[in-house]
């Protein structure tokens, strides 16, 4: 247990991820051609792009869910990313036949390890669901379900966390709370968040890459001042958000007046 500093098990040191020469196709279409980027260790990196640019495919490729040819995807410390990446989707993906705690410990059971119910309980408490460990997913609200999914992601205790628009399906106030919660609980891990929401990217990202074009490439990289989670009320953030919205709208506007 000496690698972990506390019951939630924060791995130290965090590992970065290097991606070089990634080409991804979806059917006949080339989504990404020779894409390269780095995820700095222990930082939140955001990939911002319009819907349909291929963000989800990119995350699936990094998570090993899609075959990738010729690309180099490497963890800075151990090399192969196998078994070092946790993945969280826009949909909570909770299994309806398991209660909240058993959903959180699903990974253990898939690996044939004993489930650590105590740690699951602590993680659920951490996301504000202390009393809901025995509750079935159907009895939870959308925001609560997404918090269970966040606890499940943390239970996996992987140094690299991929988030696919994880807060897109909940209402705005819930999203606001979830963003802050994620920033706090995922601090110290290497996080890649893909989103189409400039504000979300600016609140959470140490670095924000803007994707555009077809095949998509990184058109711009922003490093907003200050540390995430940033306040949405700051004028600098509002100005950047307006600029990003313009940029996304232009990238997206073929055929529109």
């Amino acid at each position: 247990m000496n690698v972990f500093d506390g019951p939630l098990g924060r791995p130290t040191p965090a590992s970065g991820l290097t991606v070089r020469g990634l080409t991804l196709r979806f059917r006949a279409e080339i989504l990404f051609q020779d894409l390269s980027f780095d995820l700095p260790p222990g930082r939140f990196t955001c990939l911002l792009g319009p819907s349909g640019v291929g963000k989800t495919s990119l995350l699936r490729a990094l998570a090993g869910l899609m075959p990738v040819r010729d690309a180099e995807i490497r963890c800075d410390d151990t090399g192969s990313p196998a078994g070092r990446i946790a993945w969280m989707d826009q949909r909570d993906q909770l299994l309806p036949w398991l209660n909240a705690r058993d959903n959180v410990t699903l990974g253990s059971r898939l690996r044939g390890e004993p489930a650590d119910g105590e740690r699951a309980r602590m993680l659920l408490a951490e996301v504000g669901l202390a009393g809901q460990a025995e509750t079935q997913p159907a009895a939870l609200s959308g925001g609560m379900r997404q918090r269970v999914a966040l606890a499940r992601t943390l239970y996996e205790d992987r140094p690299i966390v991929l988030l696919d628009e994880p807060f897109a399906a909940v209402d705005a106030p819930t999203r606001h709370r979830l963003q802050r919660l994620a920033a706090r609980l995922l601090a110290g891990r290497t996080v890649l968040l893909v989103t189409h929401d400039p504000l979300e990217a600016l609140i959470l990202g140490h670095e924000v890459h803007v994707l555009s074009g077809r095949p998509a490439r990184i058109a711009a990289t922003l490093r907003p001042d200050g540390l995430p989670p940033r306040s949405a009320a700051s004028p600098a953030l509002a100005a950047m958000q307006a600029e990003l919205l313009d940029r996304l709208a232009n990238a997206d506007s073929e055929g529109l007046p």
Binding site: A63, Q93, L110, R111
Partner: peptide, 12 residues
């Protein structure tokens, strides 16, 4: 979605 999630967790 369940299968994708499980594949990121389960051994190869």
């Amino acid at each position: 979605g369940w299968l994708d999630l499980a594949r990121t967790m389960a051994p190869a």
